[in-house]
Computed example of a mutant assay.
Amino acid sequence: MPETHTAYTDTDRLIRALDAAEATPGAATLRARSYQLLRLPPDATVVDVGCGAGRAVAELAERGARAIGADLDPAMLAAARSRFPGIDVRAADAADLPLRDGDVHGYRADKVYHMLPEPTVALAEARRVLAPGGRIVLLGQDWDTVVIDSDRPELTRRIVHARADTIPHPRIARSHGNLLLDAGFHDVGVEVHTAVFSDATALPLIAGHAEAARRTGAISDEQAEAWIREQNGRAAAGRLMIAIPFFLAAATR
């Protein structure tokens, strides 16, 4: 059973990384802002698509919503049920939600659309399940504009772009507003929030970028090692600086 063990180890590692990121004050503030933009009436039904380990589903339920989580990863769903007993999470594809037409008052997707094979199909499904006047909120980072301070700016640009190129839709977050307009939503608004990381908690992100760039052949093993070494040194000296723009788009059905 080594494959199963490895899969769960990877999921556990991902959950720990998500927990660390979601626990930062900036992340909590951004989630709260996304809930506010849903404009949910009391006891409203909301679906969180790509719910992962369930934190947003639990927080929305705490705010009085009838929250439903949807995710395709069975390990994530199991983690969500274990961590937040009693929440409603379901195995479902963003393009085929187990909901009737107009079933929900709110739809939320956080760091999801960049990985979807057909984002426009998912948006059509969002429009189907939302009641007239319901609200949709899309949140995601722009992978192509990650800012990392370095003594090797050209190498850093190459690493950032190589990492972005491994993602199906790395720049989709900057297009969230226009995608919502194209899908027939109105009252569209877009906000940009910048997450800044300056300590060692961001080093796994650094390592992931370097590994992706090395794996694609954009940089050599030696360049990856040297760049990671520089960033580790910056973290140890309190000089690490990473800034990531997050686009928050909201609209009305």
Results as ranks from 00 to 15, higher is better:
A61S: 11
A61F: 07
A61R: 14
E62L: 15
R66A: 05
R66G: 02
R66L: 14
I68M: 12
G69V: 04
A70K: 02
D71M: 05
L72K: 12
D73V: 07
D73G: 11
M76G: 04
L77E: 12
A78V: 08
A79W: 04
A79D: 11
A80S: 08
R81C: 03
R81W: 04
R83K: 14
P85R: 09
G86T: 07
A92S: 06
A92V: 03
A92C: 06
A92G: 09
D93Y: 02
A95Y: 01
A95K: 07
L97I: 03
P98S: 03
L99K: 12
L99Y: 02
L99F: 07
R100W: 01
G102V: 00
V104S: 06
V104Y: 12
V104K: 04
H105L: 10
H105K: 15
Y107Q: 08
D110P: 00
H114P: 03
H114S: 11
M115C: 08
L116D: 10
V121S: 07
V121D: 03
A122Y: 12
A122C: 08
A122G: 05
L123F: 09
L123E: 13
A124W: 01
A124M: 01
E125C: 11
E125K: 00
R127W: 13
R128P: 11
R128L: 04
G133W: 11
I136W: 08
V137A: 09
V137S: 03
G140I: 04
D144N: 15
D144R: 15
T145S: 14
T145E: 14
V147G: 13
I148L: 14
D149Q: 08
R152I: 01
P153F: 12
P153K: 08
P153R: 11
E154T: 05
